[in-house]
Structures are given as C-alpha cells and as structure tokens.
C-alpha cells in the first residue's frame, strides 16, 4: 500500500521521496531516537571529564584507566558478573522443569498455571523485591515462624542483606523470563517427535537428551541471555536486599550521576556494562547457531 502511494507521489514534481525511505523511515527514526542518540551521548560523555563543577568536553581516556586500575571497580564488576551468573543458573534450574511440566504434564491445569507464571510480571518490580524484605527480615515470615516453632530465641539476621537474599530475589523475579521462552520452544515440539524417539528405541532420558533438550535450546538461550543482561544491570534488588558487599555496578553508576557528580566516569562504567552484556549475548547467539 505505502509503496503504491509513494510511487504515485514520486511522479508528481517536487515530491520525489525514494520508496525505500518510506519503508525504512519509521524504524530508522526509532533507532535514532532510542538507540543512537542515548548511547552516543553515553559514549561521548565517557571520554569527557569533570572540570570543577562542569563537564568539560576535552577528550580523555582517564575514565577507562580508572576502571582498569582501581581494584574496587573490578571487584564491583565481578560482583555483578557472578551475581548475574548465579541468578541465571538458578533461574534456569527452576524454570526448565517448570516449563517442562507446563508442556508435557499439566494438561488441563495448563492455562491456569501459565497464568500464574505470567501474573508476577504484571506487578511492580519494586514491590516484588520489597516482598522478600518482608519475608526474610528480622520480624519477617521466616524469623517469626521459626520463633513460634521454638527453633530460635531471637530473630536471625542471616537471611537478609547478603548474596543469598540478593540472588533469591532476582531468581524469583527472573524465573518467568526464562520459563516462558522455554515453554514456547517446548510447545512447538510435537508429541509425535517425542514418540518417534521412544518408538525408535530411545529411553525417556535419552529422548530428553537427544531430542527435547536440543530442540528447546533456543528458548533456553533466549531466557538466559535475557536474565543475565537484566540482572547484571539491576540496581533495585542490591540496594534493597544486598549488603555492603553486594554493591553492584548499576549502584555505582547511579551514584556517579547523583551525589558524586561524575557523569563522564559513570558513562564509562555504563559503556563497560553494555560491552560485557553484548559479549554475553553474542556468545549465546554463537551457541545457538551450532
């Protein structure tokens, strides 16, 4: 349709819009506004520097040098990396059986259970993170239950503000993100393919390893890269539920744009985060290709 309109217009003098531009225009505009400009800004800021109370546009590599040289930032990056890795791993361990159950076992309860998996996605991220603070806190569900059972005399602090509470919360948040793409992949697999494998003499576990798992791998990779990227850059969960040792890179970046007023350094950290996430996504894409 738009092509035909463009052709008619193209014949009128003075209005010679190339057809390609009409089709490509909107997506290009989208890319420009939401990708090129913001990321370009960050990239530019990362090679500028702070001069007193203003940002001076003189070029420098100083920001990046600081990240590499200061062990503190390397530590924080490692924190984020290991947390994201743990979150991805545990989310996958929970989400795969969940998706498997939904696809092959649930039958009639499937719609209802699917709804239950999706519904947390409709509530606020902050709220869901906060819920765990209530559950794990000094007067939270875990402590009060254990106290009333007489297992402990005084509330324990060991559930909250550590890597355990941080990873637990992020896993809780990201399980649906992993389960849904796996479910989509498993659903495409036909019952006949599973039965064909059994029929040809493969035991159930062999069938899983050689037919079901390889065919659901695209879903696994999609869910895992998603979860890794999002938890790597998360700042809500560490600030609500992490302890001083669980500061993650996003928290540091926020402080650079806030109290520290060092936008260039914050931008350099952000570029490093984007680079790491892109590397992980590329790695996932490579596995999927094979």
């Amino acid at each position: 349709m738009s092509g035909a309109v463009a052709m008619n217009r193209g014949r009128r003098p003075g209005l010679r819009l190339p057809r390609g531009l009409l089709v490509m225009g909107p997506p290009l505009l989208y890319l420009l506004v939401f990708l090129v400009i913001p990321y370009g800004e960050i990239l530019l800021h990362s090679i500028w520097q702070v001069d007193g109370y203003t940002i001076s546009k003189s070029l420098t590599a100083e920001n990046y040098a600081r990240i590499v040289e200061n062990p503190l930032y390397r530590q924080v990056l490692w924190n984020s990396f290991s947390t994201a890795l743990l979150v991805t791993l545990f989310s996958l361990l929970l989400a795969y059986p969940l998706a498997f159950y939904l696809t092959f076992v649930a039958s009639r309860r499937r719609q209802f259970l699917y709804f239950l998996v999706v519904i947390p996605l409709l509530t606020s991220f902050l709220l869901r993170a906060y819920t765990w603070k209530l559950i794990l806190g000094r007067s939270g569900l875990v402590n009060s239950t254990m106290q009333s059972l007489g297992l402990i005399d005084t509330p324990l602090d060991l559930f909250l503000y550590n890597q355990f509470s941080l990873v637990l919360t992020l896993v809780y948040i990201f399980v649906p993100f992993v389960a849904l793409p796996i479910y989509a992949a498993l659903e495409k697999l036909s019952r006949d393919q599973v039965e064909a494998s059994l029929d040809l003499g493969a035991r159930p576990f062999t069938t899983f390893r050689r037919v079901i798992l390889p065919l659901s791998l695209p879903g696994v990779i999609a869910g895992c890269t998603f979860t890794f990227a999002l938890s790597f850059g998360d700042f809500v969960a560490p600030s609500l539920l992490g302890g001083p040792d669980q500061i993650m890179i996003a928290n540091v970046i926020i402080s650079q744009f806030g109290t520290a007023f060092d936008w260039p350094f914050g931008s350099a950290l952000a570029v490093v985060v984007v680079a790491i996430v892109l590397a992980v996504v590329a790695f996932g894409a490579r596995i999927e290709k094979r």
Partner: peptide, 20 residues
C-alpha cells in the same frame, strides 16, 4: 512393555522427523 522395548517401529502421519 514400553514403546522403546517393543520390536515394532512406527511411521507417523506427520513424519515426526527430527529437525535438528
């Protein structure tokens, strides 16, 4: 006796080939 231990094989209507 489960399908994988029976001396029979099946040709499915959908063919059910393994796409990978």
């Amino acid at each position: 006796v489960p399908p994988y231990r029976r001396p029979v094989n099946t040709v499915f209507q959908s063919y059910a080939l393994f796409p990978h």
